[in-house]
Simulated assay, not measured.
Amino acid sequence: MSELFDREVLDQAAQVLARARDGGVRIATAETVTGGLVAAALTSVSGASAVFERGFVLYHPTAKAVGLGVPQEVSEEHGVVSAAVTEGIAAGILDNSTADAGVALTGYAGPTGGNDRDPVGTVYTSAIHRGGKVVTERHVFDGDRTEVKLQAVEVALRLLGDQLQGSDEP
């Protein structure tokens, strides 16, 4: 049987889940550009249901703009693919679940979309932990649509894992 993700991604997902389990933390995802691939990577690991609570997929432009409680003014001012919107979606994970930590992504996988500031391949990723601070990164990935999405999954898992590593309290 073939795997959807390569061994490196599955190992990374397993590490995130182990950190969550060791910390007594439940996690959730909110994805636009990756369409649920981060949740799929996490749930590809046996035992994920012990800590993975849920995944939100916000794909339609209006869902991206105001999903999980992001104020419309934030999307209008910064654009739906922006650090501000991604951070708002990350905060919305905690407001709309009982998860303790989560990761959110927005971006342009291509081949269309993007703009001068954020070209195709741009992905914003925000990791959050209840009672902690949101950590956001911006990347511009090369490759086709699938390659951009898979690179974004790796960044999301790393960022969420780092967030869980940095918090000893659930």
Rank of each mutant, 00 (worst) to 15 (best):
V134N: 04
E169T: 15
R158F: 01
D162W: 12
Y108L: 04
F56K: 07
G132V: 06
A18Q: 14
V153H: 11
D6R: 13
Q163L: 04
L157E: 08
V66M: 10
E87H: 09
Q165D: 13
G107N: 03
G107H: 02
V155W: 06
T29Y: 05
T146V: 10
L4R: 15
S97F: 05
R130T: 10
V57N: 03
S49C: 08
V33Y: 06
A152P: 07
T106S: 15
D162R: 15
E73T: 14
E147R: 15
D11S: 13
L150R: 15
P119G: 01
D100N: 14
T43C: 09
D11M: 06
R145C: 02
Q163V: 01
N96D: 03
A101K: 08
Y124A: 04
A101W: 05
T112S: 12
L4K: 13
A13Y: 13
R145L: 02
T29P: 03
I89V: 15
L68W: 13
A40C: 06
V135Y: 00
V140A: 06
S75R: 11
L157G: 03
V140Y: 02
R21P: 07
S49D: 11
N115P: 00
E77D: 09
A91G: 11
V135A: 09
A39P: 02
Q151L: 02
Q15W: 13
V38K: 05
A84N: 04
F5M: 07
A99N: 09
L68Y: 12
L105R: 06
G79S: 12
G102M: 07
A39E: 14
Q151I: 02
A41C: 06
I93L: 05
P119M: 04
T106D: 06
F5Q: 12
